[in-house]
């Protein structure tokens, strides 16, 4: 398993979460290592425009497409999740990797109590069973930090939803061998670790 490092935020907590589960994960920014990986963790926080530029500079965009197309288990987290879509509204509009059809939009708060970014624990309503969600109760809370949210083009790609600032958005996206969470499973306590452990055992089929 590899954790993709494209200088988009701090990977310490992702690495430590897998370490706590006794799973060895290699952090890499090299496309050839990503291409050989059995499974891929694609995290990230920060701005989408700069992140996409770095992925291209490092040649990681092609490596990620290759891994995704070959059916190997792939998990996106937070900004990583947003980047797998066709495009995002962030930074005046940025093209993503296009691994899942759809786009990423910004929260539009209706009043002053709806803060952007959303920071904190919010419920995930499970829309369909998925091996990576095994053992996770419907309505469990996960830790979110984000100003933009994914909108898959197809309802079939939505595995879980969350409500915030008047939007019901896809907080768990699942399409074939790709699963992607808008929240941070690595910072979501025992339930988040369960999700990562499920991912580490998943064969990519669903």
């Amino acid at each position: 398993m590899v954790i993709v490092d494209y200088k988009a935020g701090n990977l310490a907590s992702v690495r430590l979460a897998f370490e706590a589960l006794g799973i060895s994960a290699r952090i890499t920014d090299r496309p050839e290592v990503v291409k050989e990986a059995e499974r891929v963790v694609f995290p990230g926080v920060g701005a989408a425009g700069a992140a996409m530029r770095r992925l291209r500079e490092l040649g990681l965009d092609e490596a990620l497409r290759e891994v995704a197309e070959e059916g190997r288990p792939f998990i996106g987290i937070c900004l990583g999740t947003q980047i797998i879509f066709d495009r995002t509204e962030e930074d005046g509009g940025v093209a993503g990797l296009g691994l899942v059809r759809g786009e990423v939009r910004r929260f539009r708060p209706r009043d002053r109590t709806e803060k952007v970014p959303q920071i904190g624990w919010n419920q995930v309503n499970v829309r369909r069973a998925h091996p990576v969600l095994a053992g996770i109760e419907n309505g469990s809370e996960f830790y979110f930090v984000h100003s933009y949210y994914p909108c898959p083009a197809s309802e079939d790609d939505v595995a879980g939803t969350t409500d915030y600032a008047g939007a019901t958005f896809a907080s768990v996206v699942a399409r074939r061998n790709i699963v992607a969470t808008q929240f941070h499973p690595e910072k979501s306590g025992r339930i988040g670790l369960r999700l990562l452990e499920n991912f580490s055992r998943w064969d990519g089929a669903c």
Binding site: S13, A17, A20, Y143, K187, R190, L193
Partner: peptide
């Protein structure tokens, strides 16, 4: 602390 807990 970071090794012991997995919340922010």
């Amino acid at each position: 602390v970071a090794r012991a807990i997995h919340i922010p």
